[in-house]
Amino acid sequence: MHKYTSLIFILILVLLSGCSSTNFNLKLTTPKSFTPGQATPIQLSIQDQDGKPVKGAKVSAILDMQGMSHGDVSMKMQESGNGVYIGQAKFEMEGDYTANIYIDSNGEKWKGEKRFSIVYNKAQ
């Protein structure tokens, strides 16, 4: 019986240590439309688990069009203040995208993803 108790205790410790990694709350803001050949602003708000803005992080994103293999759009994002990061992307096609977001905050690396859709700017 003592062996099983020890085994269960060790498994609980392993599970708890695996669950202690930091996660971030992300809010991705993109325009509804874009103009081909022009830079389109992408904004990302990052908060920690306590709802506090994440400041001073290194942030980048790779935008991948779902179902297509024409190449990804990658961008580095610059902090504009209060946990908000901004990047510029040049879209060539309208459609559904996945933003693979990479965050390096205080030496801790993390990857998340957000999905969005964007269409051509019809006002031209």
Rank of each mutant, 00 (worst) to 15 (best):
S105T: 08
F116Q: 12
D48K: 07
M65P: 07
T98N: 15
K32I: 10
G83F: 01
K3D: 12
L26F: 09
S20W: 11
K58G: 03
N23E: 12
Y102L: 01
K32R: 15
S17H: 08
G37K: 07
S45W: 00
V84Q: 14
L7T: 14
T5I: 15
P53C: 11
V73G: 00
I103E: 00
L16M: 12
I101G: 05
T40A: 12
N106S: 13
N82A: 15
K55D: 12
L15V: 15
N121W: 14
Q47G: 05
T30V: 12
Q88Y: 00
G83K: 00
S6P: 02
T22Y: 04
M65T: 08
I101N: 01
Y97P: 03
E113W: 03
I86Y: 01
V73Q: 03
N106H: 14
Y4R: 15
F9S: 11
K58Q: 09
C19N: 13
L28K: 07
E108T: 07
L15P: 05
S60E: 05
A99W: 01
H2P: 01
K27M: 08
N23K: 08
S117F: 02
S74G: 08
M65D: 08
V14F: 11
L11E: 06
Q49W: 09
Y4E: 11
A61W: 03
Q124E: 10
T98C: 00
Q38L: 04
N121I: 13
S69A: 14
I86Q: 10
F9N: 04
K55C: 02
P36M: 00
S80N: 06
M68L: 13
E113I: 03
M77D: 10
Q66R: 13
G87Y: 12
A89L: 09
T30Y: 00
F116A: 00
F116C: 05
A123E: 06
S60P: 09
F91V: 03
P36S: 07
V84W: 10
L26G: 02
K52C: 10
I101D: 00
Q124M: 10
E108D: 02
G67K: 10
L13F: 10
M68W: 07
L15G: 14
G37E: 03
I86H: 05
A57F: 05
G18Q: 11
W110H: 06
